[in-house]
Design a protein around this nucleic acid. Structure first.
Length: 666
DNA sequence: TCACTATGCTCG
DNA sequence: GTACGAGCATAGTGAA
């Protein structure tokens, strides 16, 4: 086993035709070896991640707090990690804090441990373990002062979480300096996982003690407060220790790759902004959702009856296999599209079947829409209201999207319906607090403007500079008609082709989407690039660069590696080309709105405003604004958004204002 | 009972 | 096979 390289770069195997079996073997071997390391020897000294002896200990005597704080101040930096009662930071109570200020060093401060769970007791521990007094106790003052000291840099893994946990506990964590999760994301946003466990294994060759190891798993899992102190110490200190070590590894890489500015000036400052958004949450009207649910329920029942009648039998409409059998075997409808497992029943298929005069597909489409609204939004959202605040506190994730975008989850507030009238109703359930309104500000045509900037294409650039309708202009150019003669149909097609360009869409699917032949679609695309040669050149350049260097980059200097371009599979390579073309555009839009968020977050309190940023939806920011400052905030927000970056074309922001999100229409 | 996959649908 | 980036709901399957 000695010939196993310690510093396995597992990322090297990522994506391109991975030899999964071999990879798994290596992982298992590596894990086995680190487990052996950990349990080798006399067993009472924990193994540090470098194989040496770790000095991890519990701090249970308040008298020692001052000494630890002094040592941290001397070190000039500290890695912090919190253990809590919940993964959801806005309802998590502190159970313990671990601190590490040098590799192999760590202390764990138990604040809220109780009698260990009998199922976990192996040692002779009985009764509640010794705990420190709460953070509000005078003996803890030096520690709180340290945590709140902005001049003492804090290192952490997912600091947004710890920031919120501390805020709930009455501590204002300051000096947020280095988040290893964010660093990993900046260095390689396409990486599968940025979890501490994955980073430690891949980059430090160290298999961590898993949470399940200390707290059990599944139904047998117990709260961390019931984990025996000795095991809690090892687990918690290891995390802080590893975090500190990962910083050592990431810091030089960031500067070597020229990514330090993106990290220091954009992504790290964004951490507290996102924390504030999550902390603020958004108010909903549960009564509205209850009533809408009842309404949808009644409609769904009627539709179900109707569908069953047409199918001449009862079945589970939500079941793909059952629906397939009814449509394509029992009723003998034509198969227009296939999935891996059989005929497709998706919306495009049902639309086409409905157009051919069948009645069932129409009812199925309506059933699907209503079922989607009820299950995903109307019934789900009220369940997520935090009882303490009466609001929904979604997560805004900073390290998920490979392009640099944010994502939202639990619930996802970035995909609340808007495109259909019925779906849009859901937005009536989002209401501003008393005395305030929502202000929604969105960038107009942001990705096309960025494409215009990058390509320098004269037709595009001048259209935006002159404030013209860019899709109409596009139509005039590719259909060779005067602008004032462009028909609605032509404009719609031009709009589709503009978007197709952003995604690298091919003739096959464009034709399908426009309801024209593949050849016709091909000639549209050819005409488009013939007229917009700057666009063609830009897109080709991105693919070329990606092939040469292995990555593409955004205006903010964000990189995304594209290993797909080296695949032996043509489909995968094509996918890689589309990624290379789209990522600089989508990613630059992400850079841009993040800049705006920082500016606005910094500026709002400074300007004396109470307004708070609640949501980001990729090209849109939603604020909650006291009524008496709406006009001033609007001017401020629009100004900062439109000047977030200087491009070759102007940026334009549209604003909607209303008591309900629904009412925020331009 | 839980974890996982397949499918489909919501948004920018 | 065929449009970029996400998250989530329901069914169905297979393992613990």
């Amino acid at each position: 086993m000695d010939d196993l390289p310690v510093d396995l770069d597992l990322e090297a195997w990522r994506v391109q035709d991975p030899d999964v079996g071999r990879l798994r073997e290596l992982l298992v071997e590596l894990e086995f070896r680190t487990l052996l390391e950990r349990f080798a020897g006399d067993g009472d000294a924990p193994q540090a991640p470098d194989g040496g002896e770790a000095d991890y200990r519990a701090l249970t005597d308040p008298g020692e707090v001052e000494d630890v704080v002094a040592r941290i101040r001397e070190a000039g930096m500290v890695a912090v990690d919190t253990e809590t009662t919940s993964l959801n930071p806005v309802r998590a109570d502190l159970v313990g804090i671990s601190l590490s200020w040098a590799p192999g060093q760590g202390v764990y401060l138990p604040l809220g441990h109780v009698s260990p769970a009998p199922s976990l007791l192996q040692e002779s521990e009985v009764g509640p373990p010794p705990n420190l007094p709460g953070l509000d106790d005078p003996s803890m003052l030096p520690l709180v002062a340290l945590l709140e000291d902005a001049t003492l840099p804090k290192v952490g893994q997912n600091l947004k979480y710890d920031l919120l946990v501390f805020r709930r506990a009455g501590v204002d964590l300051a000096g947020i300096d280095f988040d290893t999760m964010v660093a990993s994301y900046v260095l390689d946003p396409g990486r599968r996982q940025h979890s501490l466990d994955a980073l430690a294994l891949d980059l430090l060759g160290h298999a961590t003690i898993s949470y399940e190891d200390v707290a059990g798993k599944g139904r047998k899992q117990v709260p961390f407060a019931q984990v025996p102190l000795a095991r809690a110490v090892e687990y918690a200190c290891e995390d802080a220790d590893l975090t500190l070590r990962l910083r050592e590894r990431f810091l030089p890489e960031l500067s070597e790759q020229g990514l330090e500015d993106l990290f220091r000036s954009l992504e790290m400052p964004l951490v507290p902004v996102l924390a504030d958004m999550e902390w603020a949450g958004i108010r909903i009207d549960p009564t509205f959702f209850r009533e809408m649910s009842a309404r949808l329920g009644r409609e769904l029942e009627l539709l179900q009856e109707e569908i069953w009648k047409e199918a001449q039998g009862e079945f589970n409409i939500n079941s793909h296999p059952q629906l397939r059998e009814i449509l394509f075997e029992k009723l003998g409808l034509p198969v227009l599209k296939r999935t891996k497992t059989g005929p497709s029943t998706d919306a495009s298929v049902l639309e086409e079947l409905a157009a051919e005069g069948h009645t069932i597909p129409r009812h199925l489409l309506e059933y699907r829409q209503l079922e989607k609204l009820r299950s995903t939004y109307v019934d789900a959202l009220p369940k997520l209201v935090n009882p303490g605040t009466g609001r929904i506190h979604a997560s805004f994730n900073q390290t998920v999207a490979a392009t640099g975008r944010l994502s939202s989850s639990d619930p996802n507030l970035q995909n609340i319906p808007i495109r259909t009238a019925l779906g849009r109703e859901v937005r009536k359930g989002f209401v501003a607090e008393e005395g305030s309104v929502f202000l929604a500000a969105d960038y107009s045509q942001i990705e096309l403007r960025i494409l215009a900037h990058f390509s320098g294409d004269e037709a595009f650039v001048s259209a935006f500079r002159e404030g013209l309708d860019v899709h109409r202009q596009t139509a005039a150019v590719i259909f060779e008609v005067p602008v004032e003669k462009v028909t609605g149909e032509q404009r719609a097609r031009a709009k589709t082709i503009n978007f197709a360009t952003l995604y690298g869409q091919g003739d096959f699917s464009l034709g399908r989407q426009l309801g024209i032949s593949r050849d016709e679609a091909r000639s549209f695309i050819d005409a488009y690039f013939e007229r917009f040669q700057g666009v063609r050149r830009f897109l080709d350049e991105q693919v070329e660069k990606a092939r040469e260097r292995g990555y593409v980059e955004t205006l903010g200097g964000r990189r995304r590696y594209i290993p797909e371009l080296d695949s032996r599979n043509w489909n995968v390579r094509q996918f890689g080309e589309r990624i290379a073309q789209n990522t600089p555009i989508q990613g630059t839009a992400a850079d841009l709105i993040k800049e705006a968020m920082l500016e606005i977050h910094r500026g709002l309190p400074g300007e004396g405003f109470q307004a708070r940023l609640l949501l980001q939806v990729h090209d849109e920011l939603v604020f909650e604004v006291p009524e008496d400052e709406v006009e001033a905030v609007q001017e401020f927000v629009v100004g900062r958004m439109e000047s977030a970056m200087e491009l070759a074309v102007p940026l334009r922001v549209d604003v909607g204002i209303g008591r309900r999100w629904y009412d925020c229409k331009g």
